[in-house]
Amino acid sequence: MSVQTKPKVVAKDVNVYYGDKHALKNVSVNIPERAVTAFIGPSGCGKSTFLRCFNRMNDTVDGARVVGSIQIDDQDIYDPDLDPVQLRARVGMVFQKPNPFPKSIFENVAYGPRIHGLAHAKPDMEEIVVSSLRKAGLFEEVKDRLHESGTGLSGGQQQRLCIARAIAVSPEVILMDEPCSALDPIATARIEELIAELRENFTIVIVTHSMQQAARVSQRTAFFHLGILVEEGTTDDIFTNPQEKRTQDYITGRFG
């Protein structure tokens, strides 16, 4: 499937430094709207670093420096006038390890809408929470215990809770950093199904160390190695007809 619409996110010549360490070198990539883009590559190659550029989470890391430009809908997100806090409401993130807050399930989901003032009355908030939990495929499992702690759920449920929490603020882009690496195969399958559903409404970027997962869930794939974007294209092309030898070696399991 080829995506011909205008890209949602355009990254140009992005470089990231951690102190003296040059972690990401001249990466340029286009992220299509309402599709899943996968970042693959051996660990330490800079996938997470690049992902964290899209919501400026690298700003919170001491000593990290980002150079280059990233545009979302033609707006430069590294523009000094742009408020990174506002940006993060538009670009949600799901982390490697499920990290629900030690609060009730309801409060976990209501957290974002509350700080951004998205609900004006109590029924509005309930509406947002329920629909977010529904979209994350979690509502049926937790509808009787919305006011119990979110940390009491299973790992897979916690991760779906984190997804519900992210979509509760209606982001345009959702970043997922190895969202299944701490989960068992069944919970992983649930999340992959969910990603396929979310694709209809959100632009998704997922980092994964599993090539099968990239092949299953994504439409486009970018392969990174040692801080360099080696190759990028439709997932079908990358997996069936890679142009670069390093890509081929990696997807056939010769290193990584």
């Binding site: 409401a89 993130m93 982390f95 990290n99 700080i115």
Partner: peptide
Amino acid sequence: VPGAMRDGSLALGST
């Protein structure tokens, strides 16, 4: 308190 809590909250757009 795990850094993951902090990141989770910041990533939702809180100060």
